[in-house]
Design a protein around this nucleic acid. Structure first.
Lengths: 229, 229
DNA sequence: CCAAAAGTGTTACGCCTACACCCATGG
DNA sequence: CCATGGGTGTAGGCGTAACACTTTTGG
């Protein structure tokens, strides 16, 4: 492509939309924003923004996440690009969707409240604007794919967690119950967790030992954690 | 986002780049175009083009494929979006990469020759322009992912093919040899192939029966074909 | 004591791997 | 008749699923 060829081609707004996953009380949740004006008033929207001159799509997503949740160093994965010419009735906008995994207890509550945002369980989601519903579906699928070859959890759970909390998280991600005994053996065999001497007694009478992720180890594992995906 | 908010944001050229896979003589190949001018003269480029006013990214990719290979109804999958601000030295261009699977004997030879294009084996690729090398790597990875849960072959092989041709194709995609006996059993157990009475004697003295894909069946299989990815 | 979660052990089954082995045929 | 690819059969191993069973402790 020659430089002078560029000029004759149209240019578009390029947006980023973030599917922000958090995990709380055994439920996988999504941070969404209510749309305050027509069209699509009352429906809910992903957190988004426009790509600025000197940033990449990833930069833009991180900027948007920082501005609305106050969080840095977030685990972020690109999902897919949505580009139907009529997808946004306001103007031609091409949107790159990513998902983010955040610690639901660490975000800036004030900032989020000021934006009117709300955490929605993934199995009870509201009406979305535009094509945001299929964005969420794509993001969830991508998360499942990733979680089947990489142990997610560091990004969503507290630093110390029990194996049953991790199992519940995987249950929430895959919408499926995992056998406690087998899940325990499978996960421990991966060798990426470290047992601590701390017991968590909030969820059972007996109390369960807490684990943490080993430093330095890549959580991407050689064989898949979840076989069926 | 309100309509009047759009105007203050920058707009960019949005391109599509296609990683076109073909399969010939046991080798997985890529259709590439030589760059005829500086910068990056002599290096090779993916087939690309700009997204026009009334088309989606997918539309644009299909248009570009049609214009340069003469092929319609191509199997096309979006891979990822590349957006580093400096990725194209000529101008700010955000590019959405897809891969295409084509029958290497059916494309329009003249059209391709006129463009100076050339099929390159994936294991002997030339120098690329810009970030096209990592585009190809991402595309190959995505193809591997897809081929492990969906039987690709309809899109790359002739209508009638032997199981060993299919095995060679999978070997080329995953850069790994599959055991003939085990591959045969695994593939046939999927139940998506139909044996014909036609024998192909070009590749062995004994001759091998040709198979074809069953009509109507979805080639996406429940358990994965290739376990290690 | 009992319910309920934590944690360990056992068994059976399915699938994959790695071969051995027969078949057909052109040179 | 033999080298070569086509095609079938089989034994071993590994991982998982299913589930029994034991431990701990607050109510």
């Amino acid at each position: 492509m020659q430089d002078n060829q560029y000029i004759q081609h149209p240019r578009y707004h390029v947006a980023v939309d973030c599917v922000i996953f958090g995990y709380e009380e055994g439920v996988l949740k999504l941070l969404l924003y209510p749309r305050g004006f027509e069209p699509s008033l009352g429906n809910w929207s992903l957190l988004g923004g426009f790509v600025q001159e000197k940033e990449s799509v990833e930069d833009a997503s991180r900027r948007v996440l920082l501005n609305t949740t106050g969080l840095r160093d977030i685990y972020l994965q690109q999902v897919s690009t949505f580009s139907r010419p009529d997808r946004d009735p306001g103007a031609r906008v091409i949107s790159v969707v990513s998902y983010a995994l955040v610690h639901i207890d660490k975000y800036d509550k004030e900032l989020v409240r000021d934006h009117g945002a709300h955490w929605w369980p993934v199995d009870k989601m509201p009406q979305f604007i535009f094509d945001h519903k299929s964005m969420v579906q794509s993001a969830l699928f991508k998360l499942q794919q990733d979680a089947s070859v990489k142990l997610v959890g560091k990004e969503l759970l507290p630093d110390l967690f029990t194996l049953n909390q991790l199992r519940s998280l995987y249950g929430a991600i895959f919408q499926k119950d995992f056998d406690p005994a087998n899940f325990r053996k499978k996960i421990l065999s991966l060798g990426v967790l470290e047992k601590t001497s701390i017991k968590n007694t909030t969820e059972s009478r007996k109390g369960a030992f807490c684990y943490k992720f080993k430093e330095e180890t890549e959580m991407r594992v050689s064989d898949r954690i979840v076989k069926f995906i």
